[in-house]
Amino acid sequence: MELRADIMVDINDDAKDGGYRRVEVLTGPGRRRKWSEDDKARIVAETLRPGTVVADVARRWQVSSQQVFTWRREMRRAAVAPLSFVPVVAETPVRAPEAALPLPAPPSIEVGVAGAVLRVTPGTDVDLLTAVLRAIRASAA
């Protein structure tokens, strides 16, 4: 990165003192820079770290704080850009032979009581289930 210093000398007559001189030294690049998207993303990511001051990051990269805030705003907008329309195309599903499909296991409920696991399937007799649960509880006590 090339740095150059521009010196501007301003001489004006002042009615009281007979004149003054002002010298202004500008440092940094003297032209507009083109930042790549990767560089912009790297700079913005650096500003998003906890405890980071945007002005410090901008100074380190020799860019204005306002420019960094603009990049952050642009990236935030791009992240929440509305989704475009995607058409849905329905196709006829290819069916596998029925003999090749495994039968689904019947749904069950697993109950853990006193270190024992009891699997209960639909249709289990309620009285039998109650008796088994009482027996497990009694044996644990």
Rank of each mutant, 00 (worst) to 15 (best):
A15I: 05
R22K: 07
V23N: 03
E24V: 14
E24N: 14
I11W: 02
V80G: 04
D6G: 12
A58F: 02
V68Y: 00
S65F: 02
A41C: 09
V54Y: 01
T70V: 13
Q66K: 09
V86E: 15
K40H: 05
I43H: 00
D17C: 11
A58G: 13
S65C: 05
Q67G: 05
R59H: 11
D39L: 01
V86P: 03
D56G: 11
I7N: 08
R31Y: 10
L3E: 14
A5P: 09
E74A: 13
D39N: 04
V53Y: 08
G19F: 01
V23H: 04
G19H: 06
V9Y: 04
R31K: 10
L26P: 03
Q62A: 12
G30Q: 11
Q67M: 12
R31L: 12
R72G: 01
D38C: 03
Y20R: 05
Q62L: 15
R4E: 13
V44G: 00
A58C: 06
D39R: 00
Q67A: 15
R32G: 12
D13S: 07
L26V: 13
D14V: 02
L26S: 14
I7G: 08
R21A: 12
W35Y: 14
R33G: 06
R4C: 09
R76N: 10
S65I: 02
V57H: 01
G51D: 06
W35G: 01
L3G: 04
K16E: 13
R4N: 10
A41T: 10
R59M: 05
V53L: 10
R31H: 08
I7K: 14
G51A: 07
A5N: 11
A81C: 11
D56N: 13
P82C: 04
G51Q: 02
V80L: 07
K16F: 05
T47L: 03
A79D: 05
V53P: 04
K34C: 08
R33L: 09
I11R: 08
Q62V: 15
G51K: 05
W71Y: 01
V54F: 01
A55R: 09
R76T: 13
W61L: 02
L83A: 15
G19K: 09
A55L: 09
G19L: 09
R21Y: 06
E37Y: 03
D6L: 13
D56Q: 11
L48G: 06
D10F: 03
L83W: 04
Q62R: 08
L48M: 12
A55D: 09
R32D: 08
